[in-house]
Write a protein that binds this DNA or RNA. Structure first.
Lengths: 195, 195
DNA sequence: CCGTACATAACAAACGTTTGGCATGTACGC
DNA sequence: GCGTACATGCCAAACGTTTGTTATGTACGG
């Protein structure tokens, strides 16, 4: 009943970390029980001890994705409204090695999510939540007169579309799109909408 | 010298079609020799007869992707410049069932492409070519005074980012983003940059 | 002891690939 | 014209490997 000689949650976290590492390196196509065990330096028995099967592993990986997206070390919003929106966008982009890994996994998850009804629904919900966060900043910016009035949901869709599309291009051409260039593109984008 | 009781290229096309079908339904994670053979109603031997292995199969699938993107039944540009750019964007978006399938494959390909150096390089090149096409319309629009002057390459990156990001959201939430809504978002997007 | 933690190892299924063979066509010496 | 030679199209089967999963064994703290 009571915990044994190892901390269960801590070990489970270790497995999570190994999953993360495998995904960042080989994508969802390379995610196997044995690969995770190897990255962890253990047997597959340990992996199955903490995750019942591969499906649970994948589902958990997507959960980590959302948690890390929400809790990643990010810039605090310097001010509400437009500045907050800009920060939210920069916090998504692959501006640091960690953010590159996260986005690589995020983008890779789309293939499996599009093929599995459960994951599909979960992913759809995730996007809704992200857009809700953007909408809040957009409405605040509109209240402050920093953005013209209009459907904040539609604008959030546009902002998220631009941001995620930029993520993909940055992942495939990091030399052409270093952090500074990405930031500049975000500023140009926002400038076009603030008039 | 060159016997042919069946048209080699034609049969190869049939295999391509089967690959396409499997990808649209199960993604790259579900692309197997046997699945392709089953979709074709043949043996795996036939598949390997036309494509040396799975790697060639994937590489060819990505080629089809680009060819179909370029040659798909699309709206002709009603006019050069901004109108052409708008048409190019609409031609990418999943506005029809066929376009949905194509984009589903396109998005799914990112996971494998990010994990394989060869495919990665090929994909990077493909994006460059797509951006070049957009840049041409952008420069024409600038010449016509429809768009403000500025780095056409950077603007092309922004346009492609927005378009591809919208593709992803539309795939995951087709009810919220029907064709009319996508078109509207494109028009709003362009309006913000034309001022 | 008893339950947790993990290794080891086995398992069937699915995988990519290879092989042998049987058609069926063209090419060509005769 | 005809038979030999050879290439192509394709199937069926088997190969060895890798997969996810499960069963069994061992160590150990409470």
């Amino acid at each position: 009943m009571t915990p044994a000689r190892t901390d269960h949650d801590s070990r489970r976290q270790d497995v999570s970390e190994a999953v993360w590492q495998v995904l960042a390196e080989h994508g969802f196509g390379g995610l196997t029980m044995r690969a995770v065990a190897a990255a962890l330096g253990s047997s597959t028995g340990l992996v199955t001890h903490y995750f019942a099967g591969k499906r649970e592993l994948i589902a958990h990986a997507l959960d980590i994705l959302e948690v890390r997206t929400a809790q990643r070390p990010r810039q605090a919003a310097p001010a509400p409204g437009l500045a907050a929106l800009r920060t939210q966008m920069l916090n998504i982009l692959p501006l640091t090695p960690d953010a590159v890994a996260m986005n690589r996994i995020w983008v890779g998850s789309w293939d499996v999510a599009l093929s599995d009804p459960d994951l599909f629904a979960a992913q759809t919900l995730r996007y809704e939540r992200v857009r809700a966060g953007l909408s809040a900043s957009i409405e605040e910016a509109q209240r402050l007169g920093e953005l013209p009035d209009g459907d904040s949901g539609r604008l959030a869709t546009t902002v998220l579309a631009f941001t995620h599309g930029l993520v993909v291009q940055a992942l495939f051409d990091p030399d052409r799109l270093p952090a500074a260039t990405q930031t500049r593109l975000v500023d140009d984008f926002l400038a076009a909408f603030t008039r």
